[in-house]
């Protein structure tokens, strides 16, 4: 059986990473809300991807594989920045939100980060990445019924959070 050389593997892998790492890290960031943690998640996923590259590249499943590792990761809630103390008083000091890191975060993003992890993941996969209920269930390793309930509750909370934005 002929297999690609290590150079070929490295070239193909590097091309994939160059093309998709920004998108994959945005997924990680949307899930965890912290660029450092997103970087760690991305690195973990991409190193595993390198190991599995021959069969995944052959089957065209590179991105799905990396994404699944990212969205299935256990998020370290203690590192999430919105749990840190913010300067000013929310709702009373309009400058407080502007002092968050320069990450172009919007009210929508902050509202997403207030959702419980699984609700956030299902909303992101269903309503941002456009996955079906079945695909989301497969991606997260949960039942379709659980996907539906998490998504429904997540959307409700998202709307409430956005409605009550200062």
């Amino acid at each position: 059986m002929s297999r690609p050389s290590r150079e070929t593997r490295d070239e193909e892998y590097a091309a994939f990473v160059a093309a998709r790492q920004t998108h994959l890290r945005r997924i990680a960031y949307a899930v965890c809300g912290d660029w450092h943690q997103a970087d760690d998640l991305l690195q973990t996923a991409l190193v595993k991807l390198y190991v599995a590259w021959p069969r995944l590249h052959r089957d065209g499943r590179e991105e799905a594989y990396a994404r699944r590792i990212i969205v299935r990761a256990n998020i370290d809630e203690h590192r999430r920045p919105w749990r840190r103390e913010r300067p000013g008083l929310d709702g009373h000091d309009p400058t407080a939100r502007e002092e968050l890191p320069l990450e172009e975060r919007s009210a929508m993003f902050d509202a997403l980060q207030t959702l419980p992890v699984m609700q956030r993941k299902t909303v992101l996969l269903r309503h941002w990445l456009g996955l079906s209920v079945e695909e989301t269930a497969h991606e997260l390793g949960i039942s379709t019924g659980t996907v539906k309930s998490h998504t429904s509750r997540g959307i409700d909370k998202l709307q409430q959070a956005l409605t009550h934005q200062p």
Partner: peptide, 26 residues
């Protein structure tokens, strides 16, 4: 709305670093 709710983040780590880690793992 979600797509536009945040940016692309800071610079990425060098790809060579990932390749080297991948090689070691393999």
């Amino acid at each position: 709305e979600i797509e536009q709710s945040f940016g692309a983040g800071p610079a990425h780590r060098p790809i060579e670093e990932l390749v080297a880690k991948g090689r070691r793992r393999v």
